[in-house]
């Protein structure tokens, strides 16, 4: 309950406070969000598996976001930024789906 409220609070803050993002960071924001989403889904699944660990969550969240942004940044420097972001999105998307399926099995037993 509290985590869900925290999530909603963050979304509302982000939508209404309108913090200005530096132009240089803008291309990496969507990728960072997808990476963070992967970490959050992993955390939810771990919670349902009963093996949730807050330290692992924090570390995986931060490292996911940084690595995803770094990979895309490197790609941009090498001229393959678009392709690399596609690759990152595909890999993270598959992980998110797999974790979401595990969560679904936990919740609905189906």
């Amino acid at each position: 309950m509290i985590p869900a409220l925290a999530l909603a609070l963050g979304v509302v803050l982000g939508l209404f406070l309108h913090p200005t993002v530096p132009d240089a960071l803008q291309p990496y924001l969507p990728i960072a969000v997808v990476a963070a989403l992967d970490a959050v889904f992993g955390a939810v699944r771990a919670q349902l598996d009963g093996i949730f660990d807050d330290r692992v969550f924090v570390v995986s969240f931060v490292s996911n976001v940084l690595v995803a942004a770094l990979v895309v940044f490197m790609g941009d420097q090498l001229g393959v930024g678009g392709q690399l972001s596609t690759g990152v999105v595909v890999v993270l998307g598959i992980r998110i789906f797999t974790n979401a399926a595990a969560i679904r099995r936990h919740v609905f037993h189906a």
């Binding site: 509290i2 985590p3 925290a6 999530l7 909603a8 609070l9 963050g10 979304v11 509302v12 803050l13 982000g14 939508l15 309108h18 913090p19 993002v21 803008q26 924001l29 969507p30 960072a32 969000v33 963070a36 989403l37 959050v40 955390a43 807050d54 330290r55 969550f57 924090v58 969240f61 976001v65």
Partner: peptide
């Protein structure tokens, strides 16, 4: 810690969506 991180995640999502 988890709550702080989730607020951060929500913030990130909200900002990206607003952008």
């Amino acid at each position: 810690r988890a709550v702080v991180l989730l607020v951060l995640f929500g913030l990130l999502t909200g900002v990206a969506a607003a952008q």
